[in-house]
């Protein structure tokens, strides 16, 4: 088991390298000249050829592509993502706190989504075709298909404006979490509980359930066995859900004025702030790799068959 863990972690290193390279290439494929962006954002009235050359040299953009990549990569490992073209501040000082804010929001939502999905998934699977199964699926279908920004606006209007119970926006106290977390949970739990439900149903049709029942085991024990096997599928889905939510909070963050990655990245893209965009893409890609590794490890711990595969 320990050997599997070490191997699995080592395997993610080349993956991260490939991702960093792709990130760098893609940003550099952009038709815009970074030096021009810098000058524009500094408000230089007339951009001459001379000035461009000078800026390129300052930013190290005159060096060959590969050298630039290596420099950038080494800096990234030291969490130095360069300086923002627009504000001139170190990128990490912008993206670090924003990432933390989004991460908090994501983790709180994810924990609730996971617990809710498992709970609802079990209930619906055990009561397949019964009233409760139909109603949970119906309600969740209705809620999931509502666009998050509509749901968010409605909730702000009702809970914050009409009832004046919760803050409308910002990140001031634990109360600020309630509305955004609820909106995120509603958008995702409806999808993920179906994964648990269908995986439970698949397992309930397995032979081992029949043999367990034929051996006279109580349903409680059988459900535990089924749950353990069903969650193996769900673990991968849940672990991937975390980076997905991390990367897709843009709408929620903008509606609730959450000082997180979503708002930051939109601003960076609009002002063509390349170092910030680069750091954002890299950070999210790394999050996917990290959570994928975690999911594989949890799965290996739960499913003995997987441990031998590596």
């Amino acid at each position: 088991m320990g050997r599997y863990m070490v191997k699995r972690v080592l395997m993610s290193i080349p993956l991260l390298l490939v991702i960093s390279f792709l990130t760098f290439v893609l940003i550099n494929l952009s038709p815009l000249e970074p030096a021009e962006v810098v000058l524009q954002s500094q408000g230089v009235p007339k951009i001459t050829e001379e000035l461009l050359e000078q800026t390129k040299e300052e930013l190290g953009l005159d060096k060959p592509f590969f050298i630039r990549y290596i420099h950038w990569l080494i800096d990234c490992i030291r969490l130095d993502f360069g300086e923002s073209f627009v504000t001139g501040k170190p990128v990490w000082s912008l993206i670090g706190p924003a990432f933390l804010n989004t991460f908090k929001l994501t983790m709180v939502s994810s924990v609730i989504i996971i617990l809710l999905s498992i709970g609802l998934g079990i209930i619906c699977a055990l009561k397949e075709g019964k009233f409760i199964d139909h109603s949970v699926r119906g309600i969740s279908f209705f809620l999931t298909s509502m666009p998050p920004y509509l749901l968010a606006s409605l909730m702000i209007w009702y809970f914050s404006v009409q009832l004046d119970l919760l803050p409308t926006s910002g990140m001031t106290s634990y109360q600020s979490y309630i509305l955004p977390v609820t909106v995120i949970t509603i958008s995702y739990a409806g999808i993920y509980f179906r994964v648990v439900r269908s995986s439970m149903l698949t397992n309930l049709n397995e032979e081992y359930v029949l043999f367990g029942r034929a051996s006279g085991l109580p349903e409680r024990l059988i459900t535990m066995h089924v749950l353990r096997n069903s969650l193996q599928v769900a673990v991968s889905v849940f672990c991937m859900a975390i980076p997905i939510i991390l990367g897709s909070t843009v709408v929620i963050e903008n509606v609730f004025a959450w000082p997180g990655l979503g708002s930051l990245s939109v601003r960076a893209i609009l002002s063509r702030d390349f170092p910030v965009i680069q750091a954002y893409v890299l950070l999210l890609a790394a999050a996917f790799v990290v959570f994928n590794t975690i999911s594989d490890m949890i799965n290996a711990a739960m499913n003995p068959k997987l441990r031998n595969d590596l």
Partner: peptide, 30 residues
């Protein structure tokens, strides 16, 4: 009565035990 009076032996031994538990678990529980 299942197990104690009426016992079943299934066709597919591979599928008859929880794949995530060792064999002993099922026997012990039963």
């Amino acid at each position: 009565r299942r197990g104690k009076n009426l016992c079943m032996i299934l066709q597919n031994g591979m599928g008859a035990f929880d794949p995530s538990s060792v064999i002993g678990v099922h026997l012990k529980e039963t």
